[in-house]
Every structure is written in C-alpha cells, then in structure tokens.
Amino acid sequence: MYTQSMDIPDAAEKGPPESASAASELANAFEARIDADGRIEPQDWMPDNYRQTLVRQISQHAHSEIVGMLPEGNWISRAPSLKRKAILIAKVQDEAGHGLYLYSAAETLGTSREQMLEGLHSGRAKYSSIFNYPTLTWADVGVIGWLVDGAAIMNQVPLCRCSYGPYARAMVRVCKEESFHQRQGYEALLVMMKGTDEQRAMVQDATNRYWWKCLAMFGPPAADSPHSALAMRWGIKRISNDELRQKFVDATVPQAKVLGVTLPDPDLKWNEARQHYDYGEIDWQEFWTTVAGNGPCNKERLATRVKAHSDGQWVRDAAMAYARKYRERTITEAV
C-alpha cells in the first residue's frame, strides 16, 4: 500500500481553493468540527474543495494499489517456492482489496469508480511513481515489501485518523491487513541473505535500486508540495512529507544492519545533535520525470491497466445483462 503521490496534483486539476463561501454558517460549522478534530461523514456539508481534494487523494491512493499489483504480480509465476508463491498471490490480492476499499470510500463522495478509473486510464489521475520502476529480480519483491510497504506504512497509519470518516475507516482496514506485507518482505530477504552469494548480491542490488526511490515516495518537501498546507489544515494529512521521510530513514537504518545490507548513501550518518540520521540529496529531477509519465515503466503499467479493463468489458456486460434478464428471479439475499 502506497501513498506518496497524494501530494501531486492531477493533470487536469483546476486552480486554488474557493474561499468566498467561508462566511456561511455551514462552513463555520465544518471548520469548527475540523478544529475540534471531529469526523466528517458523507452526508455532512463540506466545502467543494475538501470534497475534491479527498476524491483526488483517495482515488490516487486506490490507483496506486491497483497499479502496484503489477510490479509484484510480475513475479507470481516465477516465485521460487510454492510457499513464496502463495504468500505473493495473497499479498498482491490484498492490494486489489485495498484498492477496492479505497474506491468505495471515494464513492461516498459522489464520484463513481468508473469515473475514477476513467481518470486513471486517460492518464489524468496520478498514482505512486514507485510503481513505474521495473522489478528485475525476485529480491525486488522482498525489497518492495520491506522498503516500499515500510514507507507506505509511515504514511498510512496517520491516515487512520483522517478527518473524513469513510477514508479513515478504510485505512483502519488497510492497515490491519498491511502489517503482514512489510514483515513478509523483510523475512523473505532475511532468508535470502542466509542463502548463496548470488542471493545476497541480489538483495543488495535490489536495495540499491529501490532506496532512493523510496525516499522520494514521501513526496517533495512541504514547500514544494502544492496541496500539503490545506490538507494538513483539514486533517486529511497529519504529518509532513519530510517528517515522515525522516521517520522512515530512522526506522530503516537499523533494519538494514540486521539484514546485512548497506544503504546506498555515503551521506547517511547519525546526527547526535538532531537525534536523527542525516541523509543525502534526493534527485527530485528524476522523481518529477517519472511523475510526468517518463519513467521506465509508466507506459507499460498504464496500458496494462487499460487493457485489463477493456478486455473485461464483455465480462461485466454479460453479468449485467444476465442480472437484468433475471432480476425478478434473483432475490437471494441471505438473512
């Protein structure tokens, strides 16, 4: 589960928030509830911009889950043992489930899943840029669990307290299921590190390729992030990108040590004064290039999602046609 790109505006999105209606009584009541750390539910009045921001954020989040199935799904057929195959299928399946929970949460805001998918398929909506990188070896699967899911967890846990009720509830469910993802990834790497030299080299290589991309996943520093301030104000986002990134680095360094791999950053060192690890400069140019659609796998990922959806059209049509024909016959609700 993966949440970085929620700070990235979708391509077709329009300008700054409306603020004229802030004087209204409804707006005041809304603001008061936000200030009191209360929850907003689907039928409550909410500013248009809050609604739009949520739809964008939740749908980007859902898209990330669905696109995120592809790089790991790439290794299901070649998983090196039946146990690992089962674990990986279950994990990729969980991502489908998370996408589904999140689409459902966004649907409570009046945007249908079909509309959201249309946004993804047209290239308008964004998803986490981490999935535009290839999974080249089996170790990538473990590293995605360890680092990518690890980074995502930093982001997710605070979202369980998000101001929008359905999103917060979806995130509680997601987090509950998610806890196994990072652990299974890390454990898979631990086992490989106890194997052959080739296996250890594989783990180090995957770590090298994914480390910087994971740091970038948290999104640009708050100053560069167009939505952060408002999202913080509204309790849609609780902790800043930089804060989360630091938390991730601090948590990961000791894990890397136990695992026996090095993290590819010569500037990475403990800062006694800050009581945090310092780390090197992130290549934001590469990040923005990938976000803009020009990473190594952007086109493949998107085209694959589009194809799955359009190839599935006749299946969905058939189910609906059948249901229509036999509507009166299919009253089989369980009680």
Partner: peptide, 24 residues
C-alpha cells in the same frame, strides 16, 4: 494466478486469486 492484476473487475480479480491460493 496469471490473472492476478488483470481480472475483468477488481472483485473478480480477488475471487480468482482466492481460488489460485486454494489450488496452491
């Protein structure tokens, strides 16, 4: 399991993965 990530709809993707897991 070749369908995982490519199903006709999310709900069915999940259902088919369950069946693959049963078979494995």
């Amino acid at each position: 399991s070749e369908w995982c990530g490519h199903g006709p709809i999310l709900e069915e993707d999940i259902a088919l993965a369950n069946m693959s897991l049963d078979m494995i």
